[in-house]
Design a protein around this nucleic acid. Structure first.
Lengths: 227, 227
DNA sequence: TTGACGGATAAAAAATTTTAAAGAATTCTG
DNA sequence: CAGAATTCTTTAAAATTTTTTATCCGTCAA
């Protein structure tokens, strides 16, 4: 089933741009121009992700995210906050309304796409057409099933291992620092020590068997996937 | 390279505790007892993070954060606010001076440590790929991917080697003294004998193979990249 | 011929990563 | 809900990689 995203923003242009782009990404998108409108939407449907402009005309963006956070039914839905000014996020943080990610306008669609992917990945969801199998030689990653096939043999991955390996395989050649990895795999407000990443890398390599070298170490920098 | 933190608090004990602890964490810490003092500090250095007590004796903590927020040069620096009373944060928020994180005294050092890490991590997010590939004949340097290609063959560089080669290739024709190189590649707070650079140059040349001559020696002066 | 300078090499020192093992936290199950 | 099982994180040591220092050598110019 397609993943559903609610977009809540009072600027029509933004709504349109997001809608067009996200639909083409394989998401099911519903856009609302105000918090009040969105509330109605929640009555009939529960989205997999909310993209919310915190600073809308009538200032109800803040109020709205507080509501989301306190609603038993909705609080598990990941939220990506949009805002024109980065200071506004401070307020969000200060009010402990913390979301799963933050983006400052103007943002690139590409940036948003990868944030969405990261957020959904963390919550265990993946968009319909992204359930593709990532392949490299004898390594097959099937994000949907949380499984990895190495030379045909099925191997179980934990959630973080899967997220990490997906991150790497989706961005071949790119080098990630440990901080990058923590942010994109575990979220922005998690406190973990760098060495933790090394341990996950090690576990992953162990599971990759003969292909353990597809994860390359860049001493003093981080890790990456190299074909 | 070491991250620099400015600590601004009028209580000497707090300053000392923070300083000792953060230095042992590997940060470069400068402490100030007042906003006025700190301002001087900003003239000569731009820290990576500011830890600010909002409620100092002469109440200039508030004024100071407003200044930071409105200064073009400083507003991108993340700020962690310290305060004795949680109500004070409401004031901070009310004045829209929001910081990137908040801590109420007394706080545990462990708590502060992880907040600092998270804040720095957030601010270090990569702005979506800006691929700069430096090319010269068969030499291709891709700093983003930490990779060097010599006639198509991929060669791994260490961090310093990459920094050095980038420095050279970004400034063709320019001659760098060994001190120049040390400063820009390893940071201002590193003390090393300048013959060290020669060793790095030699290693680089070895890796450059046929193209070793793109790094030119200027006897009595230093090194540079010559097309 | 001497002394300054950089190239080469090896070895020491420092920094970083890997590994294993154990402690926390979370999720599963009855 | 408790206890078990799984997953995640921390820690500390061994192993590896990178950086630095030291030394010897040849070249070049005064």
């Amino acid at each position: 089933m397609k993943k559903t995203i609610f977009v809540i923003d009072d600027e029509k242009d933004i709504r349109e741009i997001l809608k067009i782009n996200l639909i083409s990404e394989g998401y099911d998108v519903t856009a609302f121009s105000s918090a009040a409108e969105a509330k109605k939407g929640f009555e009939s449907e529960k989205p997999d992700l909310i993209i919310l402009d915190v600073m809308m005309e009538d200032k109800d963006g803040f109020e709205f995210c507080r509501e989301i956070r306190s609603s038993e039914k909705l609080k598990s839905i990941p939220v990506i906050f949009l805002s024109a000014k980065s200071e506004e996020f401070d307020k969000v943080l200060g009010l402990e309304l913390g979301g799963d990610d933050y983006l400052t306008k103007p943002f690139s669609i590409k940036e948003l796409r990868s944030r969405i992917k990261a957020v959904l990945r963390r919550s265990g969801e993946l968009p319909e057409d992204k359930k593709i199998i990532l392949k490299y030689k004898g390594v097959e990653l099937n994000p949907e099933q949380f499984s990895l096939k190495v030379d045909g043999e099925e191997i179980k991955l934990t959630k973080t291992e899967l997220n990490m390996l997906s991150l790497f395989m989706e961005n071949p050649g790119k080098v990630f620092t440990r901080d990058n990895i923590i942010n994109s795999v575990r979220g922005h407000d998690v406190f973990v020590v760098d060495r933790t990443i090394d341990v996950h890398i090690m576990n992953l390599r162990k599971k990759l068997g003969d292909y353990k070298n597809i994860i390359t170490t860049f001493s003093g920098v981080g890790y990456g996937f190299k074909e």
